[in-house]
């Protein structure tokens, strides 16, 4: 795949530029949170009871929360939590899902049957319900929330990877490798995996947004990140009690979630255009 072409397509679609810029900005904000946030101490939980529930002003652009903490600072720090959770969930789910899917699709037969039946069991649960169940079992906390979401997520990638592996393993270059006596595992890693990845990457990019959203949902329900860690879902959850009189408390973290999820979806669309050779040709 040629780099100039990739960049050309990415830049052709204005929405994808928006998505990409937002995500780049979010990553920069997350990295530089301690520099950018006006009140880093408050962001990390230090109460400031003198200034409780202040409306947005010059000193506190997003207002303050029920403990007087600067909401802007907490939203900025929350980007760290959200991105870390989103990336970890998707990465972990990819790791489990893609390896199982490749094995099932490539070897077929009984291995396939067993792996896919297990996958079906996981898919039978509504995703958030399963995550809730696991999170409740494992206990509260960010790490457990990541595990819970990844465990409820991997079966989707297994299905996708299996389907790709089944179609890729029939291609002549795979058979040519077998004719050269190359082992199944090497064929899987060198030939089947790289040629199965495109739709999986698209799916994963789009899922990043949903993972962040579900992590926020877990936090909102009290099963994810625990206070005083700055987290958007948690802030919305805490802010909901103050919503009628102090609208800025849940609205700004909510907006942050909304913008982030949207940005990942826009990027996912763009990645698909870059990766899918048919769409690619039409766009060039």
């Amino acid at each position: 795949m040629r780099k100039e072409e990739t960049i050309k397509i990415l830049l052709r679609n204005k929405l994808s530029i928006v998505g990409l810029s937002i995500i780049v900005a979010l990553i920069i904000i997350a990295i530089l949170a301690s520099v950018l946030a006006p009140y880093p101490d408050q962001a990390l939980g230090e109460p400031n009871l003198k200034e409780r529930l202040q409306p947005p002003s010059r000193i506190h652009p997003f207002g303050t929360d029920h403990l007087g903490r600067d909401i802007l600072s907490r939203v900025i720090y929350g980007a760290r939590t959200s991105l870390v959770v989103g990336f970890s969930v998707v990465l972990l789910a990819l790791l489990i899902g893609v390896s199982l899917g490749l094995i099932a699709g490539y070897f077929g037969g009984k291995v396939d049957l067993i792996i896919m039946r297990i996958t079906d069991i996981f898919l039978a649960f509504p995703p958030l319900l399963l995550a809730l169940l696991i999170a409740t079992t494992l206990g509260r906390g960010m790490l457990n929330a990541i595990l819970a979401l990844a465990i409820s997520w991997w079966p989707w990638y297994t299905r996708l990877a299996r389907g790709m592996a089944i179609s890729v393993k029939e291609r002549p270059y795979v058979e040519a490798s077998r004719a050269m006596g190359i082992s199944d595992w090497k064929i899987m890693i060198r030939h089947v995996l790289p040629n199965s990845l495109s739709p999986i990457i698209v799916q994963a990019t789009m899922d990043m947004g949903s993972a962040i959203l579900e992590a926020a949902a877990l936090s909102f329900l009290g099963l994810g990140v625990q206070p005083p860690t700055p987290d958007w879902g948690l802030m919305v959850s805490e802010g909901k009690n103050y919503f009628l009189n102090y609208w800025w408390y849940p609205v700004f973290p909510g907006l942050a979630i909304f913008i982030t999820v949207m940005a990942f979806n826009l990027l996912g669309d763009a990645v698909r255009e870059v990766i899918d050779p048919r769409l690619r040709r039409r766009l060039l």
Binding site: P172, Y173, R190, H191, P194, N195
Partner: peptide, 8 residues
């Protein structure tokens, strides 16, 4: 074309 891995 399909007898060569497009990613190598």
């Amino acid at each position: 074309y399909s007898s060569l891995n497009p990613r190598l």
